[in-house]
């Protein structure tokens, strides 16, 4: 599935420089820069409402940005960046008569008033995409009747069938049970290895993906920090990001971000901090 990508895999799949996003008068992102490389799994972390979805949609070109550049290397069939996208809420109606196969097939030029590739080639691609997410045996099932984890896989196959360079997933782990969550994480890891994709997935909690991500983009207070997990998710870098003291604690292999204990000079963090629930146990 990675023909056409290997030639320029030395270039980053996506380069974002000095990006500013303002939506409806609200500043979402200020001077953000980061790079997404091939064969890399990146976690986009931030509290609910921090602007993760907005950032993803800006990369997709669905929301205009105020200034800055978004550069992607490969362009797809219609001059659009070849980016696969799995949206956050997938409400597939069980009453819609559409099979997994059909859903994935619509990923190839779903806009298509005319079709650019042969039927045989299309079916081959769909079959490949289904295989890569381990859904071949469910190809004939009605999508609306599949479980949450299976629907998620079907959506990933839909995104992959267009042969993107970059795969964006918006909160793919929300609403999944622990087992399904683990399955999706494993799937993304193996997809990265086999296809050389650059994958960016957003999550409000770092912990489920802590083990597998190569890079973290941390979004808070309209600012963004990116880099290897152990560099970004530290007391000093997150404190700088939030503009007041927060502490990163590692317990039993989990990362917990709490407002700092010794920050008596900052009275206002309780209202501002996204994880303020965690402070309730303090005196």
């Amino acid at each position: 599935m990675n023909q056409g990508r290997s030639s320029n895999s030395s270039n980053p799949a996506l380069e974002v420089v000095d990006l500013n996003i303002v939506v409806g008068g609200r500043r979402i992102l200020t001077d953000a820069s980061f790079t997404l490389n091939h064969t890399t799994l990146t976690g986009l972390i931030g509290a609910n409402g921090a602007g993760k979805t907005t950032l993803l949609k800006t990369i997709l070109g669905l929301i205009p940005h105020e200034s800055g550049t978004i550069r992607s290397q490969n362009f797809g069939e219609h001059g659009r960046p070849s980016i696969g996208y799995v949206p956050q809420k997938i409400n597939l109606d069980p009453d819609v008569p559409i099979r997994t196969f059909d859903l994935v097939e619509l990923g190839i030029n779903g806009r298509g008033l005319r079709r650019s590739i042969t039927k045989k080639e299309r079916f081959k691609r769909v079959e490949e995409a289904l295989q890569s997410v381990g859904m071949s045996h469910l190809a004939d099932r009605r999508v609306g009747l599949l479980s949450g984890g299976e629907q998620q896989r079907a959506m990933i196959a839909h995104a992959l069938v267009g042969r993107p360079d970059l795969l964006l997933l918006d909160e793919p782990l929300a609403n999944l049970d622990v087992r399904a969550e683990n399955e999706v994480v494993q799937l993304l890891t193996s997809l990265k290895a086999t296809t050389g994709l650059a994958i960016l997935l957003s999550a409000h909690d770092l912990n489920p993906i802590l083990e597998v991500v190569d890079q973290v983009i941390y979004l808070a207070e309209s600012k963004l920090a990116s880099g290897p997990t152990e560099e970004v998710v530290t007391t000093s870098s997150l404190s700088a990001l939030y503009g007041h003291h927060v502490e990163v604690i590692r317990v039993n292999g989990r990362v917990v971000v709490v407002p700092g204990r010794d920050s008596s000079s900052h009275h206002d963090y309780d209202q501002q901090h996204p994880n303020r629930n965690l402070t309730r146990s303090q005196p």
């Binding site: 996208y85 949206p87 997938i90 819609v96 559409i98 619509l106 779903g110 806009r111 267009g162």
Partner: peptide, 18 residues
């Protein structure tokens, strides 16, 4: 095709430029 895709999910359709 665009009709079917946007009926299943308007968001997915938008991503494909529908």
């Amino acid at each position: 095709r665009p009709l079917l895709l946007s009926s299943v999910s308007p968001e997915l359709a938008q991503v494909q430029g529908v």
